[in-house]
Simulated scan of single mutants.
Amino acid sequence: MFDWLVVGAGFAGAVLAERLASVRGERVLVIDRRDHIAGNAYDEHDEAGVLMHRYGPHIFHTNSEAVFAHLSNFTKWRAYEHRVLGKVQDGKLVPIPINRTTVNRLYDLALTSEAEVEAFFDARAEKVAEVRTSEDVVVGRVGRELYETFFRGYTRKQWGLDPSELDKSVTSRVPTRADNDDRYFTDSFQFMPADGYTAMFSKMLDHPNITVMTGTEYAAVKDKFPHRRLIWTGPVDEFFDFRFGKLPYRSLRFEHQTLDQEWFQPAGTVNYPGEEVPYTRISEYKYLTGQVHPKTTITTEFPAAEGDPYYPIPRPENAALYKRYEALADATPNTWFVGRLATYRYYNMDQVVGQALATFRRIEAEVPQSAANDGPLLAAGD
């Protein structure tokens, strides 16, 4: 008999499971259909002994002191500021996001002030009356040439759509800078778990009130293990048996390679914006982890239309479809939908943690703690 069944052992599920078990003293069963905990943040040592991320690079960054403090209960940290280079025309490697160094290298200029760079952008920008699409965002800020160099091909590969077909939120996430700051993120807290993400999740879920079952489907346990309430972090459309049709996602395919050399590239990630290659980026993990090792492991990312759901596709018709599922979710008793897939939104890791902590506060305010004589909830929706 469990007080809670938590479906998904990623950030949303693990954070809530730990809070429910340690703060409320309730019994929690955590399941995941994959053979491991930690969701997409899962890391492991490969056969060569290099610590790598099975699902591509995950770099922790946040401006939330509360989120950072909470996760610090389960890990020590290694300071790390991620840097990304773009391999563009003539094989040049330039900083991404676009900054003063990017402009100077691309155009053989010697701009020295932010005002000069802003004037450079302004002279090329094509202002639009209403910014609606991802193309509008970039062309309206830096002009068509830089848009073509950095954004159009990359976006077409990543999303399978032209930027003119995508919501403005996609490219709005990537800033354009007039200074020389070459960090990919500018958050107040930029760190990596000192022993890796999987170790952090292991500590989070190491509680006598928590039972973890990996390689387990929800359908196999929902009636087998009585539970009073449910946390669902999987795809919301799957929970409702795709009643209104599938919500569209983009997926990724990862090609991992261990190389018999100490380093492969000059930064943690190198982006390939051009459509002459089918992949979007290559990442090298030793930059992220600080590991000293004579070999190195890299991951090449290939966007895909089919596969595990990674990125909700931000188009108006998809948002409308999600709203129909959201209405069903809101009407489902004793069930909380949390995380990227359950709410059909793109979240950074810290945002998922923040959402999970906010959900726990709501549970604390609304749900009485379970008592031994409470009746069981035999299956979700009963």
Rank of each mutant, 00 (worst) to 15 (best):
E262H: 09
A267L: 02
Q265S: 00
E262I: 13
E276M: 01
Q265W: 02
F264S: 15
V277P: 01
R250E: 14
G268K: 02
G274K: 01
P266A: 02
T258E: 09
E275Y: 07
Q265H: 01
W263M: 13
D260N: 15
G268C: 12
E262Y: 10
R250N: 11
P266R: 04
D260E: 15
R250W: 13
E255M: 10
G268M: 10
Q261L: 13
L259Y: 11
E262L: 11
V270M: 09
E275A: 09
E262G: 04
L252M: 15
Y272C: 03
Q257T: 07
P266V: 06
V270L: 10
G268V: 06
E262V: 14
Q261Y: 03
Q261F: 01
Y279P: 00
E262D: 11
Y272E: 05
R250F: 07
P278D: 09
V270P: 03
P278A: 04
N271R: 04
L252W: 07
R253K: 15
E262N: 11
T269C: 09
Y272V: 06
Q257Y: 06
Y272H: 12
E275S: 13
V277G: 05
V277T: 14
H256D: 09
A267Q: 07
P266E: 10
H256Q: 13
P273W: 04
T258R: 06
E262M: 13
Y279R: 00
G274M: 06
G268Q: 12
R253G: 14
N271C: 10
D260V: 15
V277L: 04
L252R: 15
Q265L: 03
Q257E: 13
V270A: 02
P278L: 03
Q261N: 05
E262F: 14
E276N: 12
W263L: 14
F254E: 00
S251R: 05
S251L: 09
R250L: 08
V277H: 04
E255L: 14
Y279D: 00
P278Q: 01
Y272F: 15
